[in-house]
């Protein structure tokens, strides 16, 4: 079964997730170490402040899109488009990823302090969930599975299932 979302929405999701994945990875100090910054056009990846702010911008977009699609799914699409086990897994990972990210954003506000251990756990769980989400997407592609109940993924006139 194909997805209820249009190709435009799917591409928007892909854009936000890709932006978050790239800028999130670049929060690790690897761009300079592995000379990614010397590749023409990629010097900006070594700017921690720029990638950090872009990560926030991507998060704003993904949070909005998630709220929008979750609402529409619950109110309009839920009966015809049940989530498969893979779909529920993605929804769970995405929800936890957004939740841990939101907690990290909250922690970064002035005068908000978390003790070191919760900070550490949030960081590591957020990083681990991002890797899981990537692995899940790769698994879906490799197995040609669907996030929706009713059969394997196949391109629709409206666009591919959101991946």
């Amino acid at each position: 079964m194909h997805a209820p979302v249009s190709r435009r929405v799917a591409l928007t999701y892909l854009l936000f997730v890709s932006l978050l994945a790239v800028t999130g990875m670049m929060q690790l100090p690897i761009a300079g170490r592995y000379r990614i910054t010397t590749v023409p056009g990629l010097a900006w990846l070594g700017d921690f402040w720029l990638t950090h702010r872009l990560h926030y911008v991507g998060a704003v977009g993904l949070l909005f899109l998630t709220g929008y699609l979750a609402t529409r799914w619950v109110l309009e699409w839920r009966r015809e488009y049940a989530l498969s086990a893979l779909g529920w897994t993605r929804a769970g990972i995405l929800g936890l990823l957004l939740a841990t990210g939101a907690v990290r954003v909250l922690k970064n506000l002035p005068m908000v302090s978390f003790s070191p251990l919760p900070t550490l756990l949030i960081d590591w769980v957020h990083l681990g969930l991002a890797l899981l989400l990537g692995l899940l997407a790769l698994t879906r592609l490799a197995c040609r599975a669907s996030y929706w109940d009713g059969g394997a993924a196949r391109p629709s006139r409206r666009g591919n299932p959101v991946s």
Binding site: R53, Y56, V57, A59, V60, G61, L63, F64, L65, T66, G67, Y68, L69, A70, T71, R72, L75, L98, A102, V105, L106, N108, L109, P110
Partner: peptide, 18 residues
């Protein structure tokens, strides 16, 4: 700090838009 408030309100705006 400014973007944080946008991020905190974004899902609510998404729900309203939906």
């Amino acid at each position: 700090n400014k973007l944080a408030y946008a991020a905190l309100f974004a899902p609510v705006a998404g729900v309203i838009a939906g």
